[in-house]
Nucleic acid binder design. Sequence first.
DNA 1: TATGAAAGACTAACTAA
DNA 2: TTAGTTAGTCTTTCATA
Lengths: 137, 137
Amino acid sequence: MDDLDRRILNILRRDARTPYTEIADEVGTSEGTVRNRVERMLEEGAIERFTVATRTGNVKAMIEVGVAVDVDTRAVSDEMADWDAVDYVWQVSGEEDIVLVVDAADTTALNDLITKARERDEVVSTKTRLILNEMLG
Amino acid sequence: MDDLDRRILNILRRDARTPYTEIADEVGTSEGTVRNRVERMLEEGAIERFTVATRTGNVKAMIEVGVAVDVDTRAVSDEMADWDAVDYVWQVSGEEDIVLVVDAADTTALNDLITKARERDEVVSTKTRLILNEMLG
DNA sequence: TATGAAAGACTAACTAA
DNA sequence: TTAGTTAGTCTTTCATA
């Protein structure tokens, strides 16, 4: 993971469909080098996956969910990952245990999701924050 | 945004390099249809961008940052987006105003980042949560 | 690091609803 | 008029030297 890797990553983070030849030009190396490095980073896990950032709805939010102490957080997370509109489920340290990152159609859909979470016996608290603006690092 | 769109998105979210022909097979349509729909979703903003999910360091975390009431949150967010190891900056509603999603080399790097945030006059509080596990929705 | 072959994406003309 | 299909062409990626 050297500076060249980081420059390649920065280009891919902004547009993962940039052709290797174009990346090569930009960072001053050959197409083959870029390709080999991307493959290496994929193997090593520096690149977890190629993906798309979506905004299918109008409301993005994070829901911090607290669960009871005797509960298998992993299992709960697993189920919540299957819920509609849920993009990511993070198990986190801190007061709450799970953070849902969601992309909901509207506030009603968001509210339904929060309700669904609160109705579960294992869930002891929720705290929702709307994501008003997102910027890439 | 119909069911076919959603199925295409789900495939792309897991691997954005899946060839159109393969997606077409999986969802039961032609390559051209998949391509047209992906292009339309890009134009409409349902797909914000093609990107890579990275893990360059060993520590992922979210840092909730509270800023003073008279501060331009946008400007602060803008600067923080440029900091090393910061993947995303979200302006959010709730007690705190900014959430940094970071991918740090180690806990020292994470701590440096938190310190850097706390040293700013505008920042009145920080709360850090380690992301222990992430799952795709 | 080149180069040719293979895979994939794109263009544009066509068909059907 | 819009969505979908397809054949041919061009671009990108990949494997080999």
